[in-house]
């Protein structure tokens, strides 16, 4: 789940916005370039965005007794890379912040950074590392890692804003607490997401074999 509206102090809200905005703007520009390069890519951009919309709307129960939702960014990052994924994620996050009071406008920068940038970059690296070995394993791992690392980042974002004691040890102590809430809950959900993403990416590969994965 995203960081709630108003729950990051002003300076941290500003900090995460400053980090996220360049990626999102660059991603928007890359979307434009991609469509100019190949107008057909519009349909896969739509599929990637649609996948983020569906998966981030599904709040699933997990082993910790609380619910969280997947991120759906694995498909976008495999097909188009991290910057386009950042832009697509920010659209889904904006919908949820404005209409669902889920996440928030003041925490949009932080949530975009975790879900649209940090998680997907890790997913992308894992994909790049594994794709020579096995495409299926690479698809699966990219989606699972992008999902899980999103919530690892969320935990650290909250730990930085709410250290248990001043200083780095306090941040780490808080991080462990928040990881216990977000990351543990996310593990089985990331596995489910990875199965679904694998199915979708395989069918995309079958029907549009010429698609150049990023």
């Amino acid at each position: 789940m995203h960081i709630m509206e108003g729950f990051l102090p002003v300076e941290w809200s500003a900090f995460w916005f400053a980090l996220a905005i360049p990626f999102v703007v660059y991603g928007a520009w890359k979307v434009k370039k991609e469509i100019e390069r190949d107008p057909k890519s519009k349909s896969l951009l739509a599929v990637s965005l649609g996948f983020i919309f569906v998966l981030s709307a599904l709040k699933l129960p997990s082993v910790t007794g609380s619910c969280s939702h997947p991120t759906g960014t694995g498909v976008a990052v495999v097909l188009f890379g991290p910057s386009i994924t950042a832009f697509l994620s920010s659209i889904a996050l904006l919908y949820q912040a404005l209409l669902l009071a889920h996440g928030g406008i003041t925490t949009l920068g932080a949530n975009t950074f975790s879900m649209g940038i940090f998680g997907p970059i890790f997913g992308f690296l894992v994909y790049k590392a594994l794709k020579k070995f096995s495409l299926s394993v690479a698809f699966f791992s990219a989606a699972a890692v992008a999902d899980l690392m999103t919530y690892v980042m969320t935990s650290f974002q909250l730990a930085l804003a709410y250290p248990a004691t001043p200083g780095i040890e306090g941040v780490l102590a808080s991080a462990i607490k928040f990881l216990g809430i977000f990351a543990i809950t996310q593990v089985p959900i990331a596995v489910i997401e990875a199965f679904v993403a694998l199915t979708l990416l395989k069918s995309i590969k079958t029907y549009t074999p010429e698609v150049s994965t990023a």
């Binding site: 960081i3 928040f178 809430i181």
Partner: peptide, 27 residues
């Protein structure tokens, strides 16, 4: 079956009891 965000909210209040959210959802 609460959401993790709700659980985290509780944890934040435990870590920093004085914190007041400075913005509420517009809608």
């Amino acid at each position: 079956w609460r959401g993790t965000d709700e659980v985290a909210e509780e944890k934040i209040k435990e870590l920093n009891p004085d914190y007041e959210p400075w913005f509420s959802p517009l809608f």
